[in-house]
Amino acid sequence: MYFQQLLLLIIHKFQGERSSTAPYYLLKGKKSGQTIQDVTYFQLHPYFSLYPKLAKETYEEEIMKLHAEGFIIMNESMIAITEKGLHQIVSVRRPFYNGWILRGNEFIFWGRVELIVQTLSQFQGNEKKFVPVQKNNEIHHFVKAFLHERDFQSKTFVANFKKQLFHLLENTQLLEIHRNLFVYRLSGYKNSGLTWEQLASHHHITVLDVKFLFIECLHILLNEITEEKYPDFHALTKDIYVQTPLTDSANKTSKLFEKGYTIEEVARMRFLKRNTIEDHVIEIVSVNPNFPVGSFISDEQIQQVLQIAQERQTKKLKIIREEIPDLSYFQIRLALTKGEEING
């Protein structure tokens, strides 16, 4: 139910202006112009790239269930929430996510915590040779360095680390189920963590619900961690926030713009289509409101587009363009992206 409510919430935010694949690409974190631009249009930052491994079939199954329940209506070009669907989400707790800047990296944080707890637990059990649950080599190196910088075999370190973890989990933003999922997934000396399936059956919820609750738990914890309150855990958040939320390709384009090249020139230099570079522009503007757009569209034109969008209560490019055929789709998209920044 939890995941379905999340889906309903996202569908609601799309305001009936996108097709049924849009929420899927959003959760997967697809780095296409359309998805990135929608994040800004519809204020979907929390949900971007929440679950890159989401399978299309799984997603479609959930959508079909929502449809069968009458919570949504859909056709080939759009998906929207119904009155009945709205009732499902009005009174529930708003989930807390930070997808835009975490993008799945919360699992790096998790892997570090998991390996540290396993190591400390094994050392307490006096069995220093053990197979790590965590297989990622980079996490191994990180944790090794982390532990060596600290007196990790001392009682005080373990006690202190545990205390920080305990306080972190007592955070009132978390539900009891969040805390249980987090701790029961951990492994230690003669004490393995539980699989998603086992966690789900213990709590009588679906595997998908478990995974999204777990991700939410990590996002809430990360949001809570400050250097003053949780010094050791703060160290574990190193490099997990996305610095430039731009894709590598858009980043290259951005650098060329800074040097003063035009769209055509950039396209030629990078052997890319003009469309792709236009997508990059939208992406850059979404991320960086100060990026100058004067060479692509005038302030007046932006205002014009926003006014039409306002009057007609739509963000559909086709409808807007019917009124100002002089502007390209790219210019309309750009205007709408700028508009979100002004209003948002």
């Binding site: 707890v117 545990k162 989990l169 009891e176 249980n180 701790v183 029961y184 951990l186 230690g188």
Partner: peptide, 16 residues
């Protein structure tokens, strides 16, 4: 009894 209590499990993992 397979009672789920994160405080108990945390104590099992890391003794105080």
């Amino acid at each position: 009894s397979e009672e789920i209590d994160w405080k108990i499990k945390l104590d099992e993992l890391l003794h105080s």
